[in-house]
Amino acid sequence: MSHDLRPLAIAIMGPTASGKTAFALDVAERFGGEIVSVDSALVYRGLDIGAAKPTVDEQARVPHHLLDVRDPWQTCSAAEFALDARRALDDIVSRGRLPVLAGGTGLYFQALLEGLAAMPAADAALRADLAAEARARGWPALHADLARVDPVAAARIHATDPQRIQRALEVYRLTGKPISTWQQEARGTRLPFRVLKLVLAPADRAVLHERIAHRFDLMLEQGFLEELHRLRRLPDMQAVASPLDLPAVRAVGYRQAWEYLDGQGTEADFRERAIAATRQLAKRQLTWLRGELDARWFDPATDRARLEQALALFLPTS
């Protein structure tokens, strides 16, 4: 009888504010693991309070990977993330440790676990042209252009997501083939690991909404706006012509805070818009997670016994 000799990894997935960080820390500490962050905001230096980055104390408890690997004026594509994460996984396993993947960025999980289609590389000149078009016409107009040539991609990409609109139009203009077609074609190499996918999600959506609001208020008390003031003062950030187009600034909460510091609305308005945006993010995350048919779902408040059973069945006993 053949045995599956692939190394093991645990993926702790879920919407924002569902308790992934605490559970990942607990699992990593108990089973000799190291945490690989799968979060498109936590890759950026300086996005700490507003992105709920693990604290210094939490990072001291368990080694963390893929935190603070880009400056906030840079980008980190899903393909770049997957390459860095695979290196981290190989390193963790080589030392006899258990990789614990934790986060809520679906595209990053997809790139790491399943691979991505071999699409054309970025074209700097074309990207500059698209950015100029956006400044002249607005990103919603470019989203409308995308809807005409690739309605499938346009349905998935929000009209206020310039990075993904730009990439989709770039691929179409370079190849004449919609990015959705590229994505449906053969993907890259799947991750050669056995992965237990655990989704943490409160069964009652109202509980998640309450957690989101409470956590955001705590962020404000901890100095979220002061953190953003520091980011805005960085010379490299001030040199960016359109900072609201940066992936780091588009992170949920940061865009709304940036606009508030630019003079848009009151602090109360900012708080409500940021919480609403976070709820919308959670909704998108849950929609993506429902497509992960091999994932197991748990309510972190009531399903601890089932979670422990899933871990015990997956991990070898010593």
Rank of each mutant, 00 (worst) to 15 (best):
K197R: 15
G138D: 07
R164V: 09
L113I: 05
G103L: 04
A201L: 12
K177S: 09
A168Q: 08
I92K: 05
D145G: 07
R127H: 07
Q183P: 01
R148E: 15
V195D: 00
A155T: 05
P202T: 04
L116W: 00
Q163E: 15
L89S: 01
H143Q: 11
A153Q: 14
A154E: 10
Y172R: 08
R190Y: 06
T189M: 12
Q183T: 10
G115R: 03
R127D: 12
E133W: 05
P178W: 04
H158G: 15
P202D: 08
H143D: 08
R135I: 05
H143G: 00
R97G: 01
G115D: 05
A153D: 06
L191I: 03
D161F: 12
A154M: 13
Q184P: 00
Y108L: 07
A121W: 03
L130G: 04
I92S: 00
R95G: 10
G104Y: 02
G188S: 08
G103Y: 03
T181S: 02
L116V: 00
F109I: 00
A155C: 01
W182C: 02
D90A: 14
A144Q: 15
A121V: 03
G115Q: 08
R97K: 13
Y108N: 02
A117N: 01
S94M: 01
E133A: 15
H143T: 07
Y108M: 09
P99Q: 05
R164M: 11
A134S: 15
A186K: 10
L130C: 11
R137G: 01
D161L: 06
V199Q: 03
A111Y: 03
A131K: 12
Q110I: 02
Q183I: 04
G96S: 04
A125G: 13
K197F: 01
A168I: 04
G138P: 07
R137F: 04
L116N: 01
I92M: 08
P192G: 06
A203L: 11
E133Q: 15
R95Q: 13
Y172D: 09
A125M: 06
V93W: 09
P120Q: 05
G106T: 00
A144M: 05
E185T: 05
L146G: 10
K177P: 01
G176A: 04
Y172Q: 09
A201Q: 15
F109Y: 15
R135K: 11
L196P: 02
P120H: 09
P162I: 10
E114L: 10
A203D: 15
L130I: 14
L107G: 08
T181Y: 00
Q184A: 14
D123Y: 09
A111W: 01
V152W: 03
L116Q: 12
P120C: 06
A141W: 01
R95H: 12
K197N: 08
G115S: 11
L198P: 02
K197A: 05
E185C: 05
K177Q: 13
K197G: 03
R135S: 11
L126F: 10
G106M: 11
I92Q: 02
R97V: 07
I157E: 09
R194S: 14
A102N: 13
R190T: 12
P151M: 11
F109W: 06
I165Y: 10
V100I: 14
E133V: 00
R97W: 02
A141C: 07
H158Y: 08
R167I: 01
P120G: 06
V149H: 10
